[in-house]
């Protein structure tokens, strides 16, 4: 990629007393790129963010952020990056606007930027409310607004939409895409596959502290599309799934020639299924790591009415 690399991890590992939480993590992040760290609970996502942002020391390996080794970071790095942890709080008794103004003065940002960010996050009409009275989604937007006040080069988000309803999550996604357009690099963690698929330029599939795959969601889905299948809906409203056998291909071309096909879809696996195949584990927000049922999900396609 021709863009500038802002973050670089090289074989980073982290051991908590006995437990190996991260193992040999290597990756890069470029300007204007959204990188998703995808993994079930306990995979090591938060640990990774803490190490990169200098809140935690790695056991081995090297992390460079904006050209500085993460072991040599001091507080001034936070003037150039934004961090939203999985439990960032707000000053509940202060108003929304005051919350931002405090951080504007810490980060030496002009007051006009506060108004700008309030408007962009749709919080302008709520600016006089105490922050503790905001709804969950509004609160999350405030946390995000605070993190981008100083237009950071890299934004770190630890599960920015966990616990939000789909509509609010979409609002957050739109904000992130806009920030990306402005050239901000975004590193986010999530255990939501759909979120990763629609938001991220590249995703790292993380399982038990190891990266199983790192590529764009599309590329991963294609890579794991081992048994190519096509779902065809016919004029008579029946649905058939065709594979790549010569027989099926002949059948498909006949159907097409006879103009009987209403819709035709290729059935690549979803990111969820890719994760299962790549790691052998299923993503499950509630239960954490759980052994996937390979039988049921093998191939990752619906087998309904295969035409013989």
């Amino acid at each position: 990629m021709s863009q500038k690399i802002v973050l670089e991890l090289n074989a980073v590992s982290k051991r908590y007393k006995t437990e190996l939480a991260l193992k040999d993590i290597s990756l890069t992040l470029c300007e204007g790129e959204i990188l998703g760290f995808l993994g079930p609970s306990g995979a090591g996502k938060t640990t990774a963010i803490k190490i990169i942002t200098g809140q935690l020391r790695q056991t081995s390996g090297e992390a460079r952020i904006l050209g500085t080794d993460s072991e040599n970071l001091d507080a001034s790095i936070y003037e150039r990056i934004g961090v939203v942890s999985d439990q960032s709080g707000v000053y509940e008794k202060m108003t929304v606007q005051r919350n931002l103004e405090i951080f504007a003065s810490i980060l030496e940002v002009p007051k006009s930027r506060v108004t700008e960010v309030l408007q962009k996050t749709g919080l302008y009409e709520h600016r006089k409310k105490p922050a503790g009275k905001l709804s969950k989604g509004q609160g999350q937007r405030l946390v995000l607004a605070r993190a981008v006040l100083h237009k950071p080069r890299i934004l770190f988000l630890d599960e920015p939409t966990s616990g939000l309803d789909p509509a609010t999550a979409v609002q957050i996604h739109e904000m992130l895409l806009e920030l990306k357009k402005e050239g901000m690099a975004i590193f986010l963690t999530t255990h939501n596959m759909e979120e990763a698929a629609c938001l991220c330029d590249r995703v790292a599939l993380l399982c038990r502290g190891q990266i199983a795959e790192l590529d764009s969601p599309e590329a991963l889905c294609i890579k794991y599309n081992t048994k190519k299948q096509y779902r065809v809906r016919l004029e008579d409203k029946t649905e058939v799934t065709l594979t790549e056998t010569p027989e099926d291909i002949r059948k498909l071309s006949e159907l097409l020639k006879e103009n009987k096909v209403v819709t035709l879809h290729s059935c690549e696996p979803t990111l969820e299924q890719v994760f299962l195949q790549a790691t052998g584990y299923r993503l499950n927000a509630e239960q954490g790591i759980s052994q996937g049922n390979n039988q049921k999900h093998a191939g990752g396609t619906r087998r309904k009415g295969v035409v013989r």
Partner: peptide, 14 residues
């Protein structure tokens, strides 16, 4: 308790 200390420290307060 309110998780704001970490926020300050990651907003460049030493």
């Amino acid at each position: 308790e309110k998780h704001t200390l970490r926020v300050l420290m990651t907003a460049s307060v030493t």
